[in-house]
Each structure stands twice: as structure tokens, then as C-alpha cells.
Design a protein around this nucleic acid. Structure first.
Length: 719
DNA sequence: AACACCGCGTTTTTT
DNA sequence: ACGCGGTGTT
């Protein structure tokens, strides 16, 4: 087979990686270096040059979008459909395994997937059942605790018997949560992965079967894998060791949700003899942008080390704008966008990036005033909207009466006289007799323990669900959805709500029917009943935020959502201490480095023009703040940076320049250094400021907390 | 059952 | 500041 069409478009490093002999391969791919390209070409190359069947390839990504894109690109290259190929998200792949072997995995056939909102409900129920105070045991915290353990592969039974009361109680919550989920075959996101892992770990024939079947394993964004995801990869890949992973330690920005960059290092140990390739040629940004970004990321320690370069020209310098306040900042950004557009460029070429979503508001205001179309990423997505979840709950309950989360959700939506009191009785009855809410309701109705009003309301609801179930049997999917929505009474319910919101909700309900009509199951969903497949799809893929933006518009998004994207003109806004790096990341040294990587990710989104901005005054959480410019600004060498003035509309009042922090401050100490102080003991450097005599350093001491010290007097020893 | 009020949290996000 | 969820009132 002539594979030149696969290898020719690649540069040397890419080609070496793509054509590496099958075996463990680690590709360290810098921003804009053609990471996806290497992955897609590798799959094509395996197929064309080695005669590997696409069906024996497993390719894993983190988002559905990335999976779809990869599939599309490979199909384009090979010229045929990859139906049946194992390509998808970690969760999608785990789900496919569990559906196929639900019995071995100890799950009912129709097991339900809990999204984090469902999980939240279940946690609250567990807390209530245990008589614990929700104020003290914040359900969010409990969720975090549960997921963190599961993502590290720890079940309640592995946690032993903690001596600490609080830990003991948390463990109790974990046990009850697991128990509830097991009884009703509910599976949260972390559970999908853990369950799939355990399935393969404990079931040797099955493990062998899949190791043999999926002989080639490829992983995208490897720096974002958590412990259990990596274990899963190891389990599948250890037999043939044909594992090809692509990642960038400098773009690891999800440590806070359990991602482990160390997995990259671990990979070289677990798969000894792995070939390592570095992709450092960047095809995206100008040299100025790249050099600026390189200088920033270079400050982090413990990097695997990569330096991006480009064959392109210097381009314009990176621009720095000192805004008076957040409105001035927004006006400046919008004016620059306006003139970009006036020069005949698309609005969609520009992106406004920020650390936290709340910052979008001011930009939206100014864009609205100026009449420039924009799109904000983030926020509630389609399948997460209340009305959609309500509609799906009717379908879920009709399909499976034991679905407690759905029962809770819609039992009184629209209001049908089933109040809290009745519900409490149902819950209590369910808890004591270990029944589903549905069965508890049914037996309670028969037991005459309820008021006649409650009985009629409750049995009305049960009949309603039964009715939906009978009616939708044998209907095409879209009609099933439509029928459930109508019989459930959701349109009338939402019509009563006033304002634009109601209209939007009704439109969304219609949109759901349309979505059902157009729904074609993915590979892993195709053996299921259409309705089950659709419900699964809704749980595993939350859909886009706003409807696809057909209009050419300015893109507003958080730095995290910008990862993987590129724009000719990028504004990195709100570069202030406390905001970016975020206050909450200043407590731990590791977190600060992650913020810096986030900064690096943001900067490397820019192709031609990069603007950095900060404000002297910023209203934040209702209070006026006077933040110092972000330390990251000081980390960009002056030679690449050019300060620009506003376009005449800035207020100019009280304008006092604040010096951007100097890089190289702190007399030789570096962030994260371990130091020792004569009386405070040992600690870690969190922060550096100033230089020479006056340099100050913030140290987090192991025993006495964090303190600011003047370097000239403190007498710190580096350990 | 509908509405008002109070208090809390408020980084980032996918599945 | 602001929005959400929970509680209390009519």
C-alpha cells in the first residue's frame, strides 16, 4: 500500500512519530504543533501500512467533539466509514463496555447514568436518610469527596476504618451512596470508569478478549488523564504494548479535577522502552507571541522541557493595555475588535478570554452597546436545561420505574398536589423497606396510610406514567418524546411561566423532539433500543451551549474552554493578581504553576495578534478592588511586549501607573523552592516580589502557615 | 401552590 | 452584585 499520502504532508518530527514501529510511543506535542494531525495520521498509517483493522484500534479523547473531529478526519483520509470502530471519550468507551457486559459488571440491563446534577440529588437524599445536616455536610463537598476517591480507584471498602470522626462519617456517606446506586443500578460518571476498570481487572477472560481485540490504543490529551483512566489504558495496553499517547505537560490545566500530569512520566516507566518524540515546530503563532509564551512557561519547574519555534516571521509585538477599570478594559478591547472588523476581517477571528466566566458580563454589555454580535461559551448546555431534564425524566421513568432521580424530579412537575408531606412519607417508606420510590408509592397507596387526597394525587401520577409507557410503545422515537412531553403536561406548565424564559423553554422542548427525530445512534449505542440510546446520548453528551452560531461573531470564553482552539486575534483580559492567577490558586505552589500553564495556553491561542490587559480598579463580587497587575505580565520579556494607550475614551482620571512586577525578583529564589527559616522552620516559596534589598518573599511554612518576609532580613536557606 | 425573603457562595469543566 | 435554593408566609 502506498502510504506516502499519509506521511508526505508531515514534518520530520511528526513523520517519525507517525511511522514509529508499533510499540509504546509518547509524543510530547507543543501547542499548535499538529497534535491531532499526528494522531489521525497514526491511525491511518496503522491501517494502511500495517494492515491493521480499524476495528482493532481504540482511540480515546476527552470530549465528544474531539472524538467526532478525529473520526471525521480519519474517514476523510482513508475514504471510508469507520463505523464500529472504538473511538470516543473515556466515558463513552467505558459505557460501551458496561452495556455489553452489564451482567458481569453487576448492573441491570437498563442501568441509568447520573450526571452531576443527578448525583447531587442522590447525595442529598443520602444525607437526609442518614439524618445529617446539609448545612454542615455540603452536598457539593461530598460529591467532590466521592468522585475524588472513585477517580483514584478507591471504593468505600478500601478506606479502612478512619479514626477521625468526620472521615468516618464521610465514609458512611460513601457506603450509603454506593448502596443506593447499586440497588437501583445508577452509575455516575466516575463510576462508569471505575466499574469498567474493575470489570476488566477481575474478569480475566474478558480482559484477554479486549486486549486481543483492541490491540492498538491511542490516547489524546494524555496530560489530562486521571488515575483510573490511566489504569484502564494500562490494563488494555499491557499485553501488546502498542500504546500511542499524545500530550503536553505544559498544557495540563485540569489538575484540580483529578488529572495527573505525572502519568506522562509514569508512562515511560510502565512501558519501558517507549519511544519519545517531541513536536516543537509551531504552525500557529508568530515568533513574538511564541517567544513571549515560551518565556512565561519557562519559569515553571519540573517541566519535561520543550521550546516551540516557528518558521514564520516575528509578526507584531504582544500588546499590553493598562486599563483604568473593567469598563475601560472592555471598551478598549471592543474598539480594537471594531477596527479589526472595519479592515474587512471576520468577527469570528477574535476571541476575548478570561479567567472566570463572570468576567464576560462587562464585555457583553459593551458589545451589545456597540452592536457587535458575539457568542459566549459556557453556561448551561442543552441537555442540562431544566425543561429538557424534566422531559427526559418522564421518558426515563416510563422506561424504568425504579429510576428514583427521575421520580423525584417530575413527581410534582407540573404541580399535581403531591406536596412535600406526601413525598416525605413515600421516601421514608422507600428507605425503610428498601424499595424504589415508585414501589414505595404503590404500596403506600394500597396500605391506606395516606390521606385520600394524597392517594388520588399519587395514583394519578402513577397512572400517568403507566399511560405514557403504554402509549409510546412501538412509536418512532420522536413521537415517543413528543407524546411523553405532552401527556406529562410540560408545555402547559411552562406556558404559565411568564416572560421570554417560558418561550425559550417551549422552544427547547420542541427542539428536543427535533433532536430525537434526527438522532442516529453512535456506534456504542446502536444495539440499544432507540429510546435507551437516546437517553444515554443525552446523559453522556450534554450538547452545545447555545445553538450553533451561524452568524459571524466575537468569541467570549474562559481560558479553560479556549484550550485546543486558535484565533488570529486574542485578548487575554483581567490579568491581575487575585483574578489571574486566581486567589484560590495562591495557597499551594502547584496550583500557581497550573495557573501559569493556563496563561501559556491562553497566549498560544493567538495566531497573529495577542493583547494582554489588566485594570487598575475592578468591581468584583460587588466590591471595588485595586489589584496589582498579574505576575504573569512581568514574566513576559520586554522585548516582545509593547504598551499601548487607550483610544481616547479612557477616563484618565486618577491614572497612576503601576509597575508590572519584574521577572527575576527575589534574589535567586524561585517559586516552589523549599526553604528553611531559623524560627519558622521549613516551607515552600509561594510568591516573590521586588528585587535587591527590598525583595519580599511569601513562604508557606509547614507549621506556622504562610508569611511575607523581607529577603534581606529573613535569612532563608534553600533546602 | 404561589410568592417573598433570606443567606450563601462565588475558578476553571467534561463526562 | 447576583443568582440560586431553601424556608416561611399567605
Amino acid at each position: 500500500m502506498d502510504v506516502s499520502y499519509i506521511l508526505d504532508p508531515l514534518n520530520d518530527a511528526q513523520r517519525e512519530a507517525v511511522a514509529a514501529p508499533p510499540g509504546p510511543v509518547l509524543v510530547l506535542a507543543g501547542a499548535g504543533s499538529g497534535k491531532t494531525r499526528v494522531l489521525t495520521h497514526r491511525v491511518s498509517w496503522l491501517v494502511e501500512a500495517h494492515g491493521v483493522s480499524p476495528l482493532s484500534v481504540l482511540a480515546v479523547t476527552f470530549t465528544n467533539k474531539a472524538a467526532q473531529e478525529m473520526r471525521g478526519r480519519i474517514e476523510g483520509m482513508l475514504g471510508y466509514s469507520l463505523r464500529g470502530m472504538w473511538m470516543g471519550t473515556f466515558h463513552g468507551v467505558a459505557h460501551r463496555l458496561l452495556r455489553a457486559h452489564h451482567r458481569d459488571a453487576g448492573l441491570e440491563e437498563g442501568f441509568q447514568i447520573l450526571d452531576s446534577a443527578d448525583q447531587h440529588r442522590i447525595v442529598r437524599r443520602v444525607l437526609r436518610d442518614m439524618g445529617l445536616d446539609e448545612g454542615y455536610w455540603a452536598p457539593k463537598q461530598v460529591q467532590w469527596y466521592l468522585n475524588a476517591h472513585k477517580e483514584d480507584g478507591r471504593r468505600a471498602q478500601h478506606l479502612g476504618e478512619p479514626s477521625d470522626t468526620q472521615q468516618r462519617q464521610l465514609l458512611g456517606i460513601y457506603k450509603n451512596y454506593e448502596d443506593l446506586c447499586r440497588r437501583f443500578s445508577l452509575v455516575d460518571f466516575a463510576e462508569l470508569l471505575l466499574r469498567a476498570f474493575e470489570l476488566l481487572q477481575h474478569n480475566e477472560p474478558l480482559r484477554e478478549q479486549y486486549q486481543r481485540k483492541l490491540q492498538h490504543v491511542l490516547v489524546d490529551e494524555f496530560q489530562d488523564t486521571n488515575a483510573i483512566q490511566y489504569e484502564l489504558i494500562k490494563l488494555l495496553g499491557q499485553k501488546f504494548r502498542q500504546v500511542f499517547i499524545v500530550g503536553d505537560d505544559d498544557q495540563s490545566i485540569y489538575g484540580w479535577r483529578g488529572a495527573r500530569v505525572e502519568n506522562i512520566l509514569q508512562f515511560e516507566k510502565d512501558f519501558a522502552g517507549a519511544q519519545v518524540f517531541r513536536l516543537e515546530q509551531n504552525y500557529r503563532s508568530t515568533a513574538n507571541i511564541l517567544n513571549a509564551a515560551n518565556a512565561v512557561i519557562d519559569i515553571n519547574r519540573g517541566r519535561l522541557g520543550k521550546k516551540l519555534w516557528t518558521e514564520g516571521g516575528d509578526g507584531e509585538s504582544v500588546k499590553l493595555y493598562n486599563a483604568y477599570n473593567e469598563f475601560d478594559e472592555a471598551r478598549f478591547v471592543v474598539a480594537r475588535i471594531q477596527s479589526w472588523v472595519d479592515r474587512g476581517n471576520p468577527r469570528g477571528d477574535t476571541a476575548i478570554l478570561y479567567r472566570s466566566n463572570a468576567q464576560s458580563r462587562v464585555f457583553e454589555e459593551i458589545l451589545l452597546d456597540t452592536g457587535i454580535p458575539y457568542r459566549v461559551y459556557g453556561g448551561l448546555r442543552f441537555f442540562e436545561r431544566a425543561e429538557i431534564k424534566d422531559a427526559l425524566a418522564y421518558l426515563r421513568l416510563a422506561a424504568r420505574r425504579r429510576d428514583d432521580p427521575s421520580f423525584e424530579r417530575i413527581v410534582n412537575v407540573p404541580a399535581r398536589g403531591i406536596g412535600n408531606k406526601t413525598l416525605e412519607q413515600v421516601r421514608e417508606h422507600a428507605r425503610i423497606n428498601r424499595l424504589s420510590l415508585w414501589d414505595a408509592a404503590r404500596t403506600l397507596i394500597e396500605s391506606r396510610e395516606l390521606s385520600s387526597r394524597a392517594v388520588s394525587a399519587l395514583s394519578g401520577f402513577l397512572e400517568l406514567i403507566d399511560d405514557i409507557d403504554t402509549r409510546i410503545d412501538k412509536l418512532p422515537l420522536a413521537e415517543q418524546v413528543d407524546t411523553a412531553i405532552r401527556i406529562g403536561g410540560l408545555p402547559d406548565h411552562y406556558k404559565k411561566e411568564k416572560g421570554e424564559k417560558a418561550e425559550a423553554r417551549l422552544e427547547n422542548l420542541e427542539e428536543l423532539v427535533t433532536a430525537a427525530r434526527q438522532f442516529g445512534p453512535r456506534d456504542e449505542e446502536e444495539d440499544l433500543e432507540p429510546l435507551t440510546a437516546f437517553l444515554t446520548h443525552a446523559a453522556l453528551e450534554a450538547g452545545e451551549g447555545q445553538a450553533e452560531a451561524w452568524e459571524d461573531c466575537v468569541q467570549l470564553m474562559s481560558l479553560h474552554s479556549a484550550k485546543g482552539l486558535e484565533f488570529p486575534m486574542v485578548f487575554l483580559t483581567g490579568m491581575e493578581e487575585g483574578l489571574f492567577p486566581h486567589q484560590r490558586s495562591l495557597q499551594e505552589p502547584g496550583r500557581l504553576e497550573e495557573e501559569r500553564r493556563l496563561c501559556y495556553v491562553g497566549m498560544t491561542r493567538a495566531m497573529q495578534q495577542l493583547y494582554l490587559s489588566h485594570a487598575e480598579i475592578r468591581r468584583w463580587h460587588g466590591r471595588e478592588n485595586y489589584p496589582s497587575p498579574s505576575r504573569f505580565l512581568g514574566e513576559v520579556p520586554g522585548e516582545f511586549l509593547e504598551e499601548v494607550r487607550g483610544s481616547g475614551f479612557s477616563l484618565g482620571v486618577n491614572r497612576r501607573r503601576r509597575a508590572v512586577p519584574e521577572a527575576g525578583a527575589g534574589g535567586g529564589l524561585r517559586l516552589g523552592d523549599h526553604v528553611r527559616h531559623a524560627s519558622f522552620g521549613s516551607g515552600t516559596v509561594l510568591n516573590l516580589e521586588g528585587r535587591g534589598e527590598h525583595a519580599r518573599v511569601q513562604v508557606k511554612f509547614d507549621d506556622v502557615g504562610s508569611k511575607w518576609l523581607v529577603l534581606g532580613y529573613a535569612n532563608l536557606d534553600r533546602v
